[in-house]
Amino acid sequence: MSVIELEAPAEVRPRSRPQPSRTRGKAWQRWLSPIAVIAIWQLASSTGLLPPRLLAAPATIAATAADLVQSGVLPTAVGVSLQRVLLGFGAGAAAGILLALVAGLSRPGENAVDPIMQMLRALPFFGLIPLFILWFGIGETPKVLLVALAVSFPLYLNTFAGVRGVDGKLAEVAHTLKLGRAALIRHIVLPGALPQTLVGLRQSLGVAWLALIVAEQVNATAGLGYMINDAREFLRTDVIVVGLLVYSALGLLTDALVRLLERRALSWRRGFLG
């Protein structure tokens, strides 16, 4: 309580102190607790409190990461996994967006597509893995398909909502400006649906990585998931942690990419949203 009482007047005080130094100070403070956790972790490992067969020491993990990069094992694994995600994401995004346009742009389209999509959405798609293996074997196809399936739903749902949410008044404007159907879709419907589609894009990238991890756990002879599974057999917790870190780094990277894309594509809203 006393903390809150002490800080409250500071908020009201005019900003005489330069803002940047204050925020920089705060950013630095945010690093303290993670660093402390790593330090304690390292200490526990060094003293033998935390045996490496449960969790490797941070220093070991760093060294292993460097080894894996140098030997080319990690780059190759990342390349394989990245390819799966890209193929699956590309196919799933194309299908999701295309179906959303079919459903969004016409009633017959909606009647044809939407019930099926809603039904498929209710399926626990990780539960499909056994079927996928029966149908497509254990090669690349089931993994790519699982990613594609996972990606297509968020994009479908959001793009469909986006298309339907386009302001009818702008469609009237398009009509009075004599825009044909193709021009209406290009200049009004697609840009109007874009903000919602980008929301779907971020969601779908999140599930894309998740689907990949699940698919690679089941069976794989290459890729990050294979590297992790292989490490498990030899109790190499350091390799497992490196694999997990790479997964999350890739996830963060794609999220940052989408955010960059959002800032570019939605710059027309910036003047309004600040």
């Binding site: 008044k169 702008l170 200049h187 840009p191």
Partner: peptide, 12 residues
């Protein structure tokens, strides 16, 4: 037509 509200297309 010039509508009662300006109805400019916001992304153009």
């Amino acid at each position: 037509v010039a509508f009662q509200e300006p109805r400019l297309v916001p992304w153009k």
